[in-house]
Design a protein around this nucleic acid. Structure first.
Lengths: 251, 251
DNA sequence: ACCTGAACACCGTTCAAGT
DNA sequence: ACCTGAACACCGTTCAAGT
């Protein structure tokens, strides 16, 4: 995934930058933002070059002047959404009160993104990364650098910092994908009122009994608990010196 | 994951199937099995009705006699792959030596499936579940029932059994999707030898320094460790009575 | 400079027609 | 009973032509 925004709009040699550049004000960032909104509103399956064109008041072919093709468009959508982290006032590349605070803010920032764009997140989760050491969902070189920086500064070895990045990615990927996929089925695809209502549950008595417990939405609590458990586990990697006690505190 | 569309043929199989019901021996299970093999060999992006037809020695439209459409075909592919759990000699619905053994075998069974079908797994992870309480990747009612049965039999409350199912799903989803996506980029899409070799790493000094640690494949070890940590966390949910000590032991 | 019409190869899907 | 040819609506993509 490209992380260099300059690479994305290579408009060389500053053009006439006045208010009226082009009739429709088409533009790569504008197209990507429109694509994100389109997916949010209509679902990924509805996104087609021609429909996105119409959404922007233009024929589909016009987009090819700004985007190399559909695949690149999807990559751009993923980058656009992940880059919202940079404008999240509660998440900062630099300022933080220790690695625990940093990872907590980062995790919550990514959760906000996933919940704001539930139809986009599966794309964030499954698009093949650009390099083997880029792990979804934190697929931005700047953020990976930042995380590794914070962890090594906090006293983690290089190896452990890398392990933390992997474990953190795995946690976020699992938690958030599970949450958006559960949310997605609530507001599911508008189907005919199933003739076989929810499949025959009578063959699964335990499932039937626990159904209330399984249907209740405790995703937020689950996320907090799993995050705390992960942070505790990470803290155990620190050299013995002065490991912050993280058992039972109230965040 | 090939990108050039020539020569998409089954590796060893004769096009005409078994003893003759119908000329081509077409059949829903046979079509689904062929689809799985096709995706394994050519990647999900290459799967089209016409190519799958050709793969089976038939025109694409012939498939519509056995499968309602492409979406249903993909659902069937997911089910087919997950159902491999039933024929895994190391995983059993009933026989097991306690819940820890059960969850360990189940986790490793799903990991084997993910690694055997890395191109299918993203589908297992992201297809919208049929019901809100079905969580990927363990999206089989029989297995959900089995897991809940084992956990409640082991003394977990209904509520905790449900929480275990969610936490277990989240762990598997994150770990396995991360692993197959990393594996997928190793054997990535055959691209032109990037002119900008791996993007400009010089702007990310920590990333550059830790690159060896990030590139090394320790997915198996990471999986074991995260699984052990999860099992420890689950054990804490048990009533105080006689909780098996699970701190520091050799699997 | 920017957009559109027309064209091409391919897709999913339906259905009458063949065997 | 099972498969195919032909047809339809829609895709992604290219490119000459319009403005």
């Amino acid at each position: 995934m490209r992380d260099d925004p300059d690479d994305l709009h290579p408009r060389g040699a500053a053009p006439a930058g006045g208010p009226g550049q082009g009739r429709s004000g088409l533009d790569q960032p504008r197209i990507l933002a429109a694509a994100v909104r389109f997916i949010d509103e209509n679902g990924l399956r509805m996104l087609t070059m021609q429909r996105l064109g119409a959404y922007l008041g233009v024929e589909g072919m016009a987009l090819y002047r700004y985007v190399p093709g559909r695949e690149a468009l999807l990559d751009g959508v993923v980058d656009t959404v992940v880059d919202e982290l940079f404008s999240d006032p509660d998440v900062h590349l630099q300022a933080h009160a220790g690695w625990v605070d940093y990872l907590q803010r980062l995790a919550h920032g990514l959760r906000r993104i996933a919940l704001a764009h539930p139809e986009v997140f599966p794309l964030v989760a499954t698009r093949p990364p650009a390099a083997p050491w880029v792990r979804p969902p934190l697929r931005s070189l700047r953020w990976i650098e930042s995380l590794l920086q914070v962890m090594t500064d906090a006293g983690f070895s290089d190896e452990n910092a890398a392990a933390v990045y992997r474990a953190f990615s795995s946690f976020l990927l699992g938690s958030l994908l599970l949450e958006v996929s559960a949310r997605g089925v609530e507001t599911g695809p508008v189907e005919e009122p199933d003739v076989t209502p929810t499949e025959d549950l009578s063959r699964y008595p335990i499932l039937q009994r626990l159904e209330p417990h399984l249907s209740v939405d405790v995703a937020a609590e689950d996320f907090e608990e799993a995050l705390e458990a992960l942070l505790d586990r990470i803290a155990l990697l620190l050299p013995r010196r002065r490991r912050p006690s993280r058992l039972a505190e109230g965040n």
